[in-house]
């Protein structure tokens, strides 16, 4: 007398089959619908995108200095490098302005356990389509705080367009992709 589905006539069986069909249809409807819906709006139609990304090693925080003869004599013979160049790098200060409004301004710390690696940055900004004036500034030396690498560009942004602002370390110039 185990409980379970009561075996009734063919009408009951048809009802069961219909019920199963409905259950499968509901489940598969749920699977199919949420596999693609509802849609998600990542970027509005009247917006473009500005990506600021930099990977740049700052200048050495301290200048190299020449070791004295006494210092060199006190060092193991295989380590007697005439110049002492501290590894630590300067933070890289980056400023980005769009139409005289500041989008980004921060000092990026150098990477690495000894702060001797490049400073890195990635940020994206949603920007209305149209014409804009872009100002980019970068300083990479605490020993020369007044020295800024600077560039200005006029942007004519289309809907959805991505503009990438990068900094080319060898040429020390801003790049706009």
């Amino acid at each position: 007398m185990t409980s379970g589905v009561q075996k009734s006539g063919s009408a009951g069986r048809v009802g069961q089959w219909l019920g199963q069909a409905v259950a499968y249809a509901l489940f598969m409807g749920c699977v199919g619908y949420f596999a693609t819906s509802p849609a998600y709006q990542h970027t509005a139609p009247d917006q473009a995108m500005l990506k600021l990304t930099i990977s740049h090693p700052g200048q050495s925080r301290e200048a190299c200095r020449e070791r004295s003869a006494e210092e060199l004599a006190g060092m193991p013979p295989n380590m007697r490098a005439p110049m002492d160049c501290p590894r630590e790098r300067s933070p890289v200060t980056v400023e980005l302005r769009l139409d005289d409004q500041q989008l980004f301004n921060a000092a990026l710390a150098p990477s690495g356990l000894h702060s001797d690696g490049p400073a890195s940055l990635y940020r994206r900004f949603s920007v209305p389509v149209g014409t804009h004036q872009l100002l980019m500034r970068l300083n990479d030396s605490v020993r020369e705080p007044q020295l800024w690498h600077e560039a200005r560009r006029q942007l004519d942004l289309k809907p959805g367009q991505i503009v990438v602002v990068d900094f080319d370390s060898p040429s020390r110039e801003f790049l706009i992709h």
């Binding site: 949420f34 998600y40 990542h42 473009a48």
Partner: peptide, 14 residues
């Protein structure tokens, strides 16, 4: 197309 941002996207919510 990495030169253009994604607008409306049909997301798999699972």
């Amino acid at each position: 197309d990495l030169d253009f941002a994604v607008g409306s996207v049909d997301l798999d919510w699972f």
